[in-house]
Design a protein around this nucleic acid. Structure first.
Lengths: 137, 137
DNA sequence: TTGCGTGCAAAGGTTTTGCATGGCA
DNA sequence: TGCCATGCAAAACCTTTGCACGCAA
């Protein structure tokens, strides 16, 4: 269910997005940020507000790792521009999260659709493996 | 750290694998299975035995979804045969987990390696999206 | 006997839910 | 006013850890 009211928390979150840009963040990141500024926001409200924003399509939610917390990313209305061919790689060893922007991903998307009847969601999919540094060892 | 002793629990787990074949299962699946047969096995022991087996390479661990429990799969010594080109797709809508076996996905692997210096781990990676039935709606 | 395996209980962490209060329109 | 948003507390979950006991070699 999308948001209906423009509340204080909702506006504060947009301020957070402006300040942090297009970085990844977790619920506890947001919580700590506002605690530090003396503007406390309950984690429950953060979860619920972000959930609404995901429904609206202005925030993406990634489940990067089962053991750690979910990762969010503000994309605003740029979903179909900057983020269309954007996907994520996570190094299993050092934990680094790598942003990759590449048109060749479309081949994978088409392949899965044509040969396996599966509509890939690149925003939700994370590739696991080893980054350059860790693979050398 | 791999297993050193051949204990009762370890043998029971192998019996479970034989009975269930190459299906996916969770820790609670195993727990419920043995509870039902009157052979209780503590979840702690299941976690620890499976962890050893993952280290030995005879069991794969997938983190299918951040909110639900981890998914395991017995592969025995067939890792480098049947499971080399095996990928998983998870439908975001109905939750179905689809096994895909396809050589063309090696292209993805090679692309990530050559253009992005990333060594993909297909056993750990899950594609998210919509399955055939859910995509029709 | 030595050290690993076991399993209960408890703790750890993230996310969800209940419920009364407060705020938006 | 009516409904949604908030936030505290508590619950629900999955997973890990501590610790004493049991078992394999």
């Amino acid at each position: 269910m999308a948001s209906q009211y423009k509340t204080k928390n909702r506006n504060l979150l947009f301020e957070y997005f402006e300040e942090k840009g297009y970085e990844h963040f977790t619920v506890s990141d947001v919580s700590a940020f506002f605690d530090q500024k003396g503007q406390h926001m309950g984690v429950t409200s953060i979860y619920r507000q972000l959930e609404k924003m995901v429904d609206e399509g202005i925030v993406n939610k990634y489940i990067i790792d089962g053991t750690s917390s979910a990762c969010f990313e503000y994309v605003g209305n740029n979903i179909h521009h900057e983020h269309e061919n954007c996907f994520h790689c996570k190094c299993e060893k050092c934990g680094k999260l790598i942003h990759i922007q590449c048109d060749d991903l479309n081949e994978l998307k088409n392949h899965l659709l044509q040969h396996h009847d599966f509509v890939l969601n690149p925003l939700r999919t994370v590739f696991y493996g080893l980054c350059q540094e860790c693979a050398k060892r």
